[in-house]
């Protein structure tokens, strides 16, 4: 997959890397066992600081999605079994987000539609 960073956007660069990698993992565009570039290689290609890439990798490693290897490389792990802790955290985050939407005037129908759309978009199998 290709990572695309917008350097003028307010969203932190490590967050952009994390979001795109997790999007690719969700959609199986990065399959278990496949290798990610070393921190140095990716930092040079994206023209960002080493720590920016490392931070995104560490976040993914902490979520149990990739394993960090020697020489700062990384490998995509097999899908973890759904854990009760993740589903609790996911439920809580979603409630907070739905509350924000409802308080801001979005209709329940629209929120449901947006959720379905997100699941459909992100879980698309590779083309």
């Amino acid at each position: 997959m290709i990572l695309l960073l917008d350097h003028s956007k307010g969203r932190p660069l490590y967050r952009q890397i994390y979001d795109q990698l997790i999007g690719a993992l969700a959609g199986r565009r990065l399959s278990p066992g496949s290798r990610l570039p070393t921190v140095r290689r990716l930092a040079a290609d994206l023209s960002v600081n080493l720590h920016t890439v490392r931070r995104a990798y560490v976040m993914l490693a902490e979520a149990g999605l990739i394993s960090l290897e020697r020489h700062n490389g990384a490998r995509v792990l097999a899908l973890p079994p759904p854990s009760p802790a993740l589903s609790d955290r996911f439920g809580a985050e979603l409630r907070r987000l739905v509350a924000e939407g409802l308080a801001g005037g979005l209709t329940p129908d629209l929120i449901t539609e947006l959720c379905q759309q997100a699941v459909a978009d992100l879980s698309q199998p590779p083309l």
Partner: peptide, 14 residues
């Protein structure tokens, strides 16, 4: 005023 970007492939052999 332009949006400056960079891009990288996650697989070097992509």
């Amino acid at each position: 005023g332009l949006r400056q970007g960079t891009a990288a492939a996650t697989d070097p052999d992509l």
